[in-house]
């Protein structure tokens, strides 16, 4: 009997020990920061929204319907923050990019407004599936091998007759691309604010500055269309310069 009791005791002990949950070891992981760049659109001193009506410096009513642009090769010296980011106000709101990085390494940034040449003519199917340059993500922002990507796309509708009838029958389409239209970006004193556990840097996009930056201006009634092709080089360059003026890294 004693032997049986001892046997039962040992057997029970083995079962209990085998069922005991192993204590999980806490991995020694370095803290990873999430940093995020947002673009805050405005129209002069007013808040900006797609499909809302604003007045151009020439007095016409305009409704912007799409603002999409690429930023590529964002880095501080040799530290790369992002190879490519795609801003699409209608589909992704204010977000330009969000990634894991140490914000202190990016108090300065250089990059391009548009797609730099080495990326612009690469096979668009070969980029990783999560890259904004992959053809499935680029979608309407890719033309083909020779012109490459559309660097930025601004579409709007204009009402040129102030008669109270909101006709908005003039189409505005600025589709700017090709290597000559690339613009450089840089800032030497970026501000990162810790918000909701993320370090956020906010750029501004002033669509009033896009229409008139003090140096040059676009009259949307007469200058309303470019696909960056032959014959529209001057307007393409002007639109490209004005868009660069409108985008401000902070």
């Amino acid at each position: 009997m004693t032997v049986k009791i001892k046997f039962l005791f040992v057997f029970s002990l083995l079962i209990v020990l085998s069922c005991k949950k192993k204590k999980e070891q806490t991995p020694n992981v370095a803290t990873v920061e999430t940093i995020r760049i947002e673009v805050s659109p405005k129209f002069g001193t007013s808040a900006f929204h797609l499909d809302s009506v604003y007045q151009t410096p020439e007095g016409y009513d305009v409704k912007f319907t799409d603002i999409i642009f690429y930023v590529t090769s964002l880095k501080n010296g040799n530290s790369v923050l992002s190879n490519a980011a795609l801003f699409n106000l209608r589909s992704t709101g204010n977000l330009l990019l969000e990634t894991n990085a140490n914000h202190a390494s990016f108090n300065q940034l250089q990059g391009f407004l548009g797609v730099e040449s080495t990326l612009n003519h690469a096979d668009p199917s070969a980029f990783p599936t999560n890259s904004p340059l992959n053809i499935m993500n680029a979608n309407t922002m890719h033309w083909g091998w020779n012109p490459g990507y559309i660097f930025f796309k601004i579409e709007a509708k204009l009402d040129t007759i102030n008669d109270g009838n909101p006709l908005f029958d003039h189409q505005i389409a600025f589709h700017v691309g090709t290597d000559n239209a690339i613009q450089s970006l840089s800032s030497s004193n970026l501000t990162w604010n810790l918000t909701g556990g993320k370090y956020v840097n906010t750029w501004t996009l002033d669509m009033l500055t896009f229409l008139n930056d003090g140096v040059q201006s676009i009259d949307l009634k007469t200058e309303n269309f470019t696909h960056s092709g032959t014959g529209s080089e001057v307007l393409t360059q002007k639109v490209s310069d004005l868009f660069k003026s409108a985008v401000q890294m902070n």
Binding site: S125, W143, G144, G229
Partner: peptide, 14 residues
């Protein structure tokens, strides 16, 4: 794929 040609490539490319 020419902008000043048939201009098809905006919607049909890749």
């Amino acid at each position: 794929k020419s902008l000043n040609g048939a201009d098809c490539f905006h919607c049909h490319n890749g």
